[in-house]
Design a protein around this nucleic acid. Structure first.
Lengths: 132, 132
DNA sequence: CTAGACCTTCCAGTGCACTGGAAGGTCAAG
DNA sequence: CTTGACCTTCCAGTGCACTGGAAGGTCTAG
């Protein structure tokens, strides 16, 4: 299986697959006599795993750490569980941040709807955003 | 007022202030005979505006567009209102995304708590993340 | 024999908002 | 006169996940 076929099968680009190899996420595949990368069936599964893990919000560095553990013959379960917990906490934090920002923006929108463009910029820069 | 004083007053670093100047967010200030930047009181207000706008989630590029309008003597109110609306929509989108990811991660955490590390990695890479 | 689809490597750029460091100039206090 | 805090410019790097492009090699169909 050449890189283009694997790209089609996985929904990635050949560029990305080479990038993953260079980033240590994929092992170097054997080559054909012409120098082309020659993938076996495992590669697609590995890419699917990367996709799933990315979908769960893990970074490539974290995914690499999981793959490295498992390539060493160790079960990465504990590691994966810890990462999931960390990402859940991270998401909660970002949700809180976003809700705060949303509240602030709603107030700004409210203020904007009551602002007269003619009197607005007269002394400051923008009384909507900076109503000192 | 030298750059260090302005940095202290605004809570930014001198590096960042130079960066803002280079990025077109701050006008070039006059220089002392020694070649030092010499800021007047307006600079602090402008930096405060940038801070407020950033707090509302606007990017530096957007803030630059607002400042450019107002520096041209135009009222940026309509522009600001549009940007606020865009960012509100953006935040709603990201909130939805994050909630989806959180639900997925919670399911993974649930699965992780029921996974036996000894039987887990036997055939796939990780049955928690990729339970095909 | 040639066109063109695909592959190779290597280098560099994207966007965002800075940050670090080198090499040197200015200024006030002691 | 020297020390040291502060300033200057310029270049380059950070983190993340790719993406683009050049220059060239390989393979298959017609």
């Amino acid at each position: 299986m050449r890189i283009g076929d694997l790209a089609t099968a996985s929904g990635l680009t050949a560029k990305t697959i080479r990038f993953y190899e260079q980033a240590g996420l994929l092992p170097e595949p054997p080559r054909t006599t012409g120098g082309y990368r020659d993938y076996d069936g495992d590669a697609a599964g590995r890419l699917a795993f990367i996709r799933d893990a990315q979908g769960a919000g893990l970074t490539l560095a974290e995914i690499r750490s999981i793959l490295a553990l498992r390539d060493d013959g160790e079960s990465p379960c504990g590691h994966v569980t810890a990462l999931i917990g960390q990402h859940l906490a991270d998401i909660e934090r970002r949700l809180t941040e976003l809700r705060t920002t949303r509240a602030a923006l709603r107030e700004l929108a409210q203020r904007a709807s009551q602002t007269d463009p003619d009197t607005c910029g007269s002394n400051g820069i923008c009384t909507i955003l900076s109503p000192h």
